[in-house]
């Protein structure tokens, strides 16, 4: 009788696929790796030499899918296998990592692309600059080309330029198809580094030296193109 019971239990056990574990993991975020004692100076695609004094972005939630990163909608990127739901603000100029409260969770399946949502900041540097629940990013500094010097201090609000539909706003806050390669595991940590190097690549600074009005459609859209570029977000995974 015992043998029969053992056989039944063994059969029932072997009947199942290998289960996927549900795991929680830590999340840390920081700016691009650099010498923090020196200002970050970049040259944009339009030849402006920009010195950034502030570069912050508010993100969350973030989803990680199991499909190969490609084009099209998020549905083409596969199924969500990991996620970080809390919203938080990243100082892209500060290379030191900050823990994200709440962390992330997922199943033990390989993630291959990320979907980062830009969100209006409730607090933190972006909220301090633009007010709570107003902007998704804040960037300030100077841009120089030849003898022209433009000082700017911009807060990015969505939809870019204040026009457009709610749907356009919903679409514009999504940064899709960011390549990642990690399998969530308990005790591991996911690191996000935000690189603002190319945030201003598309921005057309005025040769008159007047700062762009980033509440207008064109400058806002140009700034959004940089902030919402997948290349600005780099994920790495550290196993326990």
């Amino acid at each position: 009788m015992r043998l029969a019971i053992a056989a039944v239990l063994a059969c029932a056990a072997c009947a199942f696929d290998a289960p996927l574990a549900q795991v929680s993991f830590g999340v840390r975020a920081g700016g691009v790796l650099r010498d923090a004692s020196m200002p970050l100076v970049v040259t944009t695609a339009q030849g402006w030499r920009v010195t950034l004094s502030a570069a912050e972005v508010s993100v969350g939630p973030m989803y990680f899918r199991n499909g190969a990163s490609g084009v099209g909608t998020d549905q083409d990127d596969g199924r969500v296998v990991a996620e970080v739901l809390p919203a938080f603000t990243v100082d892209a100029l500060a290379p030191s990592l900050v823990d994200v409260p709440g962390g992330g969770r997922g199943s033990t399946e390989a993630a291959r692309n990320a979907d980062v949502r830009l969100v209006e900041a409730e607090d933190g540097a972006v909220a301090n600059a633009a007010g709570a629940d107003v902007a998704v990013a804040h960037v300030a500094g100077t841009a120089e080309r030849g003898t022209v010097r433009v000082a700017f201090d911009a807060s990015l609000t969505l939809p870019a330029g204040g026009a457009g539909s709610d749907y356009a706003a919903a679409l514009s806050r999504r940064v899709l198809h960011i390549p990642v390669a990690f399998t969530p595991a308990s005790g591991g940590a996911l690191t996000l580094r935000v690189d603002p190097t190319h945030w201003l690549d598309a921005v057309a600074f005025d040769d008159t030296g007047e700062a762009p009005d980033f509440s207008a459609r064109a400058p806002a859209t140009q700034l959004l193109a940089g902030v919402a570029s997948g290349a600005s977000y780099v994920f790495t995974w550290e196993a326990r």
Partner: peptide
Amino acid sequence: YVSNFNAAASPDLLP
């Protein structure tokens, strides 16, 4: 499966 019964929250998209 995936669900979200809290329309206001960031949707949980994990099964």
